[in-house]
Amino acid sequence: MTLSVRGLVKNYGGVAAVAGVDFDLGPGEILALIGPNGAGKSTCFNMLMGQIRPDRGSVKLFGRELVGLPPRAIWRQGVGRTFQITATFGSMTVAENVQMALISHHRRLRALLPYAGRLHREAALALLELVGMADQAVRPCSVLAYGDLKRVELAVALANEPKLLLMDEPTAGMAPRERIALMQLTADIVRARHISVLFTEHDMDVVFAHASRVMVLNRGRLVAEGSPRAVREDKNVQEIYLGTGAVYDLARAKGEATAGGEA
């Protein structure tokens, strides 16, 4: 197993945000974690990445315990991450953002003399090529469109050759067409590189189009798990989502993805 999560618990002032979550994630699998607002997705995610320390439970990456490690140490174990609201280095160019991650990966952070802008330039450009951002490599990150920032984040997350990608709402804040395109891109990359992905998502179209498996979180507990089709037809899940306005239609999602691809 790439990732094994057992008995993950987090309480805030007596209220259980996450009340005992268990799941496994296999190599190359794309696992979606969904649920209504306040279900505990973000808390769960932040515990996996080390931003929040769980009250109880264990998170193992290839059998090694991650609980208690800070985010930077988890990253060094081979876990990449993207944020719900993009976090990039605004005073650096697109390429430099990726180079920064590569410099860290190669443990050159404290070098005082080499020019950072020349280190790992080729590798950074290759990653940017992969996410379709090579032509914007020298632009400052601060002037990019939001969708492009998401792509940069993806390139950054791939810099340490991760075995696992954690993506918190990877398409939040993007136009529908862009979402599908970005998720398609992600899916293609991780399949080619055999990377496991855990992502949370609001857009059910995205979820059902690309996830190999879906987990549903409600009030801090996993209430359903299985293939996208099985989860979609789950009565429980439909009830939870009833009235939230979330529509999901696999055919439509697929169609749009194709349209986006052709455009």
Binding site: M49, P71, F83, F89, S91, M92, L109, A111, L112, A116
Partner: peptide
Amino acid sequence: APFGYTLRACRDSGLRADAI
């Protein structure tokens, strides 16, 4: 140099710096 870039990375986004 990388050290200067690292400092700017910490300044621009502590969250991202920690995550790389």
